[in-house]
C-alpha cells in the first residue's frame, strides 16, 4: 500500500470520527428536541459516510477489487435518515405541541398529524350521506 493512499484513508477515518462525535455532542448540547434532531441526522450520517469511504479505499488498495457493500450501506443510511427524522418530529408534535400552537399549513387542509387528506374526508362524507348506512 502506497503512502499517499494510507494518508488518505487515515484522513477519512479521523474525519468520520470527528463528524460522528460532533453529531452526538449536538444531541447533548442543543436546546430542544427539534433542534437536537439536526445533530444526528446530518453530522452523524456524514461521519459514517466518511468511515465507509475510508473502508472502500482500504479494501480497494489491499485487495485490488471494489466492493459495493459500503455503497449499499451508505445508500440505505442516506435514504432512511430523513424518514426516521420525519417520524421523530411527528411523534414530538403529537405529544408535546398543542394543535392551536401550530402555524397554519398554508394549504387547503391542516397538518397530516391531525387532519386526514381531503380524499379520505370526502370518502367519509359519502359514506355518511348514503341512506340506511350505519356510522
Amino acid at each position: 500500500m502506497s503512502g499517499i493512499v494510507e494518508i488518505l484513508i487515515s484522513v477519512f477515518i479521523v474525519l468520520g470520527g470527528v463528524f460522528g462525535l460532533v453529531g452526538s455532542f449536538g444531541l447533548v448540547k442543543l436546546g430542544n428536541t427539534i433542534q437536537r434532531l439536526h445533530g444526528p441526522t446530518k453530522a452523524t450520517t456524514l461521519g459514517i459516510g466518511c468511515a465507509l469511504i475510508a473502508s472502500m479505499l482500504y479494501f480497494f488498495s489491499s485487495k485490488g477489487s471494489v466492493s459495493f457493500h459500503e455503497l449499499l450501506i451508505t445508500l440505505f443510511l442516506f435514504l432512511t435518515a430523513p424518514i426516521s427524522a420525519n417520524f421523530i418530529a411527528k411523534a414530538y408534535i403529537v405529544r408535546n405541541i398543542e394543535r392551536h400552537e401550530l402555524p397554519a399549513s398554508g394549504g387547503e387542509y391542516g397538518w397530516s398529524v391531525y387532519d386526514d387528506p381531503p380524499a379520505l374526508n370526502q370518502e367519509k362524507e359519502n359514506e355518511g350521506a348514503r341512506p340506511g348506512s350505519i356510522t
Binding site: 460522528g20 453529531g23 468511515a51 473502508s55 443510511l77 426516521s84 411523534a91
Partner: peptide
Amino acid sequence: GPTLSDRILALDTMVINLIALLVLYGI
C-alpha cells in the same frame, strides 16, 4: 432526555454509531 422523542432519537443515533464502529472494526 426530557421527552420521549429525545429517547427515540438517541437510540437511532446509537445504532448509527454502532454501524460506524463495526465498519472500523472490519478495517
